[in-house]
């Protein structure tokens, strides 16, 4: 069975790969959106924290023999703490300035983290084994699905849904939304906004660290694995708008699939298709698909 001259299996395989990439885009743009919403900081270091998560999982495995599943808890915690420290000692000082300084500051952190890992770990990739229980494929009837990739997509959906529930349905989420809309007023009601900012940054980058652990068995763990990704995520954020949690998730997954399709039909464009979509969206709907016009 061919679809536009492409064998069915190959097409499904690429859509699958696209969904996996899209899962990472979704989780990363989600974290970016939350951080931007509250802190007004575009976190360039998001990709670096993603890389840090993957490295923590890799290193605790190598030096302490800790397996994949505990690492899935440990790595986001370590990344979250690193993020909290960075927020306390650096980001906090520039909230009153133009947001562009936030972009520059986090860019500096990217250089430090990437350079640091390159010094100590080298530039080449480190292979990371897929956990034993996740090896092999299942036959879905219409395609063969590698179990681990299915798991990644499932986890991404769970994380996005979980974040949405936390933000929309819990008291903590209500504080967060209040502080996003009116920080001074929220503070006046007795809510400790500075701590909320710190925790939000920590949680946002912990999400990136979690995505890094998920990515470790798929990509080789290497210092530049995050920054190329984060630029694509920026484009996705421009396409989707930083407005909504669901918007980021849908845009992320959707663009992953578009990228996968581009690989099948016109592989030269696969690296640029996201940016082309961005240009198109800017021309037709400058505020982004789900965005509100920023003030």
């Amino acid at each position: 069975m061919d679809i536009f001259g492409i064998p069915h299996q190959a097409l499904m395989g690429q859509i699958m790969l696209g969904l996996v990439n899209g899962a990472f885009y979704a989780v990363l743009s989600l974290g970016l959106a939350i951080i931007f919403g509250l802190l007004r900081i575009v976190n360039f270091a998001h990709g670096a924290f993603f890389m840090l998560g993957a490295f923590v999982a890799f290193l605790v495995g190598r030096y302490f023999g800790i397996g994949y599943w505990p690492a899935m808890i440990i790595a986001p915690l370590v990344v979250g703490v690193a993020g909290i420290l960075f927020e306390r000692f650096a980001l906090r000082r520039i909230y009153k300035l133009d947001p562009l300084y936030g972009l520059f500051l986090t860019f500096g952190l990217v250089l430090v983290l990437e350079g640091g890992f390159r010094v100590f770990m080298g530039s080449s990739g480190n292979p990371f084994p897929t956990p034993a229980s996740m090896r092999g494929v299942v036959d879905l009837g219409f395609m063969m699905l590698p179990i681990y990739r299915g798991f990644v997509i499932l986890m991404a959906v769970i994380v996005c849904a979980g974040t949405w529930i936390v933000i929309e349905k819990t008291r903590m989420g209500a504080y967060l939304r209040a502080a996003t809309e009116r920080p001074e007023l929220t503070q006046a009601f007795g809510i400790n906004v500075p701590i909320l900012l710190t925790l939000t940054y920590g949680a946002g980058v912990a999400l990136a660290g979690f995505a890094g652990v998920l990515a470790a068995p798929i990509q080789h763990v290497n210092p530049s694995m995050g920054s190329d990704l984060v630029i694509i995520v920026f484009a996705i954020v421009v396409i989707g708008g930083l407005g909504s949690v669901l918007g980021s998730a849908v845009t992320g997954l959707g663009l992953g699939v578009i990228e996968g399709l581009a690989k099948v039909y016109y592989s030269e464009a696969s690296t640029t298709v996201v940016f082309l979509v961005m240009a198109l969206v800017l021309l037709l709907r400058p505020a982004g698909l789900f965005g509100r016009e920023e003030s």
Binding site: I94, L105, G108, L111, G115, G116
Partner: peptide, 20 residues
């Protein structure tokens, strides 16, 4: 080598924080 990247990153951070 890669230390230069680290140093440049630190200069970047210092420029933003204290040397605007």
């Amino acid at each position: 080598g890669a230390w230069v990247t680290v140093v440049i990153g630190i200069i970047f951070i210092l420029c933003v924080l204290v040397f605007r």
